[in-house]
């Protein structure tokens, strides 16, 4: 599928910068008439993924950066977010919906990304997330 838009950028380890990239990506979707529901899900997934990269991956260290690559086609968007941290193991993240964890304030970001995106996966090291969303397709999870 031909790309409508494609870009990649290194951003400083700062959530305000991350939000500008988030806005750029969602604006691309809106300009190409993606449904509001898809835009909502992708915006939320980007927010969670970028905050995770900055806060947990790069541990808020100001000298680190985050790489964001985005490809938009007519019916699919793919975003790759890579931080310069040590990575993590997805299997070690506790399930926030377990009764024992339900009242704990953290740990919901990854669950929201998985739910709102159709494709989701980390590299082996755990510092690069690839996530994708197909136009108008709700996740079965």
């Amino acid at each position: 599928m031909a790309h409508i838009a494609q870009f990649d950028v290194w951003i400083p380890n700062d959530t305000a910068e991350a939000r500008e990239v988030q806005e750029r990506i969602v604006s691309l979707m809106e300009q190409n008439a993606w449904p509001m529901r898809d835009c909502f899900g992708v915006r939320l997934a980007l927010e969670e993924a970028l905050v995770n990269a900055i806060k947990h991956g790069n541990r808020m260290e100001p000298d680190k950066k985050v790489h964001v690559a985005c490809e938009l086609s007519i019916d699919e968007i793919t975003v790759v977010i890579e931080d310069q941290g040590e990575g993590f193991k997805l299997t070690e993240v506790p399930d926030p919906t377990e009764d024992d964890n339900l009242e704990k304030p953290g740990g919901r970001g990854i669950m929201l990304i998985r739910s709102f995106m159709n494709g989701f996966g980390y590299n082996d090291k755990g510092n690069r997330l690839t996530m994708s969303k197909k136009l108008g397709v709700a996740n079965e999870e």
Partner: peptide
């Protein structure tokens, strides 16, 4: 119109 998991965390603390 939007809220993130960080906001959910704050609401959970409020509930407690």
């Amino acid at each position: 119109e939007y809220l993130s998991s960080a906001a959910l965390g704050k609401l959970i603390t409020m509930d407690k």
